[in-house]
Design a protein around this nucleic acid. Structure first.
Lengths: 339, 339
DNA sequence: GCTTAAAATGCAAACGTGTGCAATAATCAT
DNA sequence: ATGATTATTGCACACGTTTGCATTTTAAGC
């Protein structure tokens, strides 16, 4: 059924029906009610494609996520962030399309598709880099977008609305916690050359030097994944010379959990022999013992601020200037490292 | 830029451009290439709303999920299933909109919105019940849909395309594993009055009676959530009289994991004192010790069969009749219960 | 009751595509 | 070269809405 058919039934012109269903003040309250009742009776809904063709609003938001190529994506921080975003957007009456920057099969840009085909009203980026092509697409189009979680460490960062967390601070807090707990010989299990992890390592180093410790680069390890096995294998492979280690700052909770499990199996006590601090404050941490001392990233606040800003931009209440917030992570002290 | 503007640039009528971009055989190969090159040069993409208005194809699929009201949704089976579905659909070049049956805020039906506003080409249901309203919407519209994971235990089940797993069988296998391991006094930690869990309990009872054990209803417990705490608290609250229990069939892995953790804290040995069998075969199980013996649900096969069928229906290769598959779960024996 | 203003409705043109059909251009056989 | 066939392109309408403007109806003032 189309709006014209419904109009015929109502004995009205379809434009009056359109205005009624859109709550225009131009139509008499009486007929408005009659039309709405009729629409309900006939189970009629306006065709979204036709309306967005003319209004250029789709009522959907695109969420761009980096590809997760490990099977444990659902227990990682980004998985939780994705759920939060989706639910928050749904509460705001928008649909959401979740996708990664490129279709892995065709290698075509999903961002470009969403933007240029006019499938979304706005975009939330949860990526720390973009192809030149994608960046141009976003820049040229007038579609609003907001970046969350990652910090853009380049010339563009000032022009982007984004909210991320201060990874230097987080890395510092984690290391400082170990130091305050009396540990003088910590190691750091980190992750590749991604900017946010570089920052965490910078925080780690700064804390050590602030405490007058010299920072042996050999004690800052970079892996190319962030997984249970990384932590587990680190302990197992170094079991002979764990004597000169009294603390671990793992830059992902799941790595910390792996390390702790390995130590349990070897009879090493946590935190007495080796204290451990994680990073992320995953929901699932509560399943593991000892309870993990970790860095909490203010996920919900990021989601809230990012979504609010994006929707403001979409709905035209532009105001409030640029969003450029670095949220301060906080240390949650539990059992794996106590001060 | 619109197709007409591009046509003007190309010195062609817009219909020729349209056919070129859609790879119609009606247009000369030479001009087709020229148009495509031009489109690329001007970074042009067809407006999705206009096309779906006329073709009534949107290139997106709706995924309907039950509301997750617990914060651990990402570590539950359904969370993993959601990820798999989304990724599979993306591989097939469709976008996906994930949503729950009703908007929690407005109480409006999301299914109705997606279907009647023509926002999706097809729907994947991962729910075990639907309001009458939603059912009617799906029934009246010609939009194809497939149900996954849950079994529709009512008169409609024959008319629906669905693929689910045989929960009776799974419940049976889990209990049988305990029995084969020599356990004669198992308990069952299950979940509410959802059909699939009723089936698992039925399987549990059948296995016991097949082995000549009488089934004490007091040993089949139904909780209204499925969480770590359920298992943990069960053990803790019954710590005094665990003597007459030698096995646990938990109908969700996370419950089993909670129970095992509690037993570790109490010094009860798993599986020597009490053997445990889970259900789901979650990815995260590998993080826990002892490794959980559990029921594997063939998640990927469900996703594969469901998506394939749905896309067949969307794209018109109707053939292949009704999809009505009950996949047989399998027992994965690891450490928490060995035969 | 008549004039005038305001409120409500109808008309028609968009929005950007796809597609049947007519018109033109190219190819082929003779 | 000519007519017949076929390959290619153009024309115009349709898809289902929204919205500015013209028109009609209602209300108001006296």
């Amino acid at each position: 059924m189309t709006i014209k058919e419904l109009a015929k039934i109502a004995g009205l012109n379809h434009s009056t029906v359109s205005r009624s269903l859109n709550d225009s003040p131009l139509v008499a309250e009486k007929t408005k009610q009659r039309v709405k009742k009729l629409a309900e009776e006939y189970n009629f809904e306006l065709n979204a494609n036709a309306r967005s063709l003319i209004t250029s609003k789709t009522g959907t938001i695109g969420i761009i996520f980096p590809v997760h190529d490990d099977k444990y994506r659902s227990v990682q921080y980004l998985g939780n962030l994705m759920d939060s975003l989706r639910i928050r957007i749904e509460e705001e009456q928008y649909d959401s399309i979740i996708t990664c920057p490129k279709n892995p099969r065709t290698n075509l840009s999903n961002i470009r598709k969403l933007v240029k085909q006019k499938k979304v009203d706005g975009i939330i980026l949860v990526v720390h880099q973009l192809d030149q092509e994608d960046w141009e697409v976003l820049g040229e189009s007038k579609i609003p977008f907001v970046s969350i979680h990652f910090k853009w460490n380049d010339k563009r960062q000032d022009k982007i609305n984004h909210v991320y967390s201060d990874n230097f601070k987080g890395g510092y807090l984690a290391a400082e916690c170990l130091l305050k707990a009396g540990r003088r010989n910590p190691v750091c299990l980190s992750y590749g050359e991604v900017f946010e992890f570089q920052e965490r390592r910078r925080g780690f180093r700064k804390a050590l030097s602030d405490w007058g410790r010299n920072v042996d680069p050999g004690r800052i390890l970079k892996y190319d994944v962030s997984s249970f096995d990384v932590g587990y294998n680190y302990i197992m492979e170094n079991r002979e010379n764990l004597g000169n280690i009294d603390g671990i700052s793992a830059h992902a909770d799941i790595v910390a959990i792996g390390a702790i499990e390995a130590m349990k199996e070897l009879g090493i006590r946590v935190p007495e022999d080796i204290a451990v601090v994680g990073y992320d404050d995953l929901d699932i941490n509560s399943f593991f013992r000892p309870r993990l001392t970790t860095i909490h990233q203010l996920k919900e606040e990021q989601v809230e601020m990012g979504c609010r800003k994006l929707i403001e931009m979409i709905e035209g209440d532009k105001g409030s200037g640029q969003l450029h917030a670095a949220l301060e992570p906080t240390l949650f002290i539990r059992e794996s490292c106590v001060i």
